[in-house]
């Protein structure tokens, strides 16, 4: 089972839902795919963490073989190569690791070498297994780190994924292969607008989904109308509660302080399980 918690907008409570859901289920594992700004671990008490490099192949030029013909820089769509007077410069942070330069080089002067773009962390937190990735600052391409995080999932276990915000490529990368998507929104015009964008993506991917309304009660109820119109079930509502906001600010998952919520998250899981099983 893979449940991905996503939201069109940042700050709607996506991480809160993912963490509290994982903590409420026995044996669930938590995966934080928001590798630009991983946050799940800030809500948890971390034990020992194992850190591993995430690497991408990047060109290395054999300057002796290179004739400065310029074919590599001309081919590169990402401006990662510069042909100077006496050498070719490589800008590794521009490179998308497509491998084209080493194919096109007529002198066989380009060899790809691994380069670290981020870190994969695995460990235990609050009694559950946590995997998260962290993209190095200044690196633009998150997908390789996301792939590394997802590679640690086992399909026969309960995997809860915290997705990056938005609807851009890292989000699609994260959502793929999910059995169910929980879309977290807040009842504000911003929240509704971003929910609509997320719903459009999810419908295209064809993955079963439901909505969690966070900070319920502050808006005008237009999110309910929207969900009704688009035939999307609202599977949970978390009220606008200063206590929950305060617990979040100091890094305490609210199910630990408000145990009645554990039961509600378990019920939520039951609903998801039913939907997923009925689809198979």
């Amino acid at each position: 089972m893979i449940i991905t918690v996503a939201s069109g907008k940042g700050g709607t409570g996506k991480t809160t839902v993912a963490v509290n859901l994982a903590l409420s289920l026995d044996g669930a594992k938590l995966f934080d795919c928001d590798v630009e700004e991983p946050n799940a671990h800030t809500l948890l008490r971390l034990g020992e963490l194992d850190a591993q490099s995430v690497e991408m192949p990047t060109p290395h030029i054999d300057q002796d073989k290179c004739t400065l013909c310029g074919k590599c820089a001309e081919f590169c769509q990402f401006n990662a190569l510069f042909v100077g007077k006496d050498r070719v410069l490589v800008y590794p942070e521009m490179c998308h690791s497509c491998g084209g330069c080493s194919i096109i080089c007529p002198e066989d002067a380009i060899e790809e070498q691994p380069r670290k773009v981020g870190t994969l962390f695995t460990g235990e937190a609050n009694g559950i297994s946590l995997v998260f990735g962290e993209l190095n600052i200044g690196e633009p391409i998150a997908t390789s780190v996301i792939k590394a995080v997802k590679s640690r999932m086992k399909h026969d276990e309960v995997n809860i994924i915290d997705a990056p915000p938005g609807t851009a490529c890292p989000v699609i990368e994260t959502m793929q292969e999910s059995d169910y998507l929980l879309l977290v929104t807040e009842p504000t015009p911003f929240g509704l607008h971003d929910l609509e964008m997320a719903v459009n993506v999810v419908k295209e991917l064809g993955i079963p989904h439901g909505v969690v309304v966070n900070r319920a009660g502050i808006g005008d109820g237009s999110e309910r109308k929207f969900c009704e119109e688009r035939d999307i079930p609202i599977v949970m509502e978390i009220p606008f509660d200063r206590r929950i906001a305060e617990l979040y600010s100091v890094g305490t998952p609210f199910v630990e302080d408000m145990p009645e919520w554990k039961e509600r998250f378990r019920d939520l899981y039951g609903v998801i399980e039913e939907v997923v099983n009925s689809g198979e």
Partner: peptide
């Protein structure tokens, strides 16, 4: 915002 994640992310932004 004065949340742990807010601080964590602000640090990364300032570094950028």
């Amino acid at each position: 915002e004065p949340t742990l994640s807010g601080i964590h992310d602000m640090n990364r932004v300032i570094e950028l």
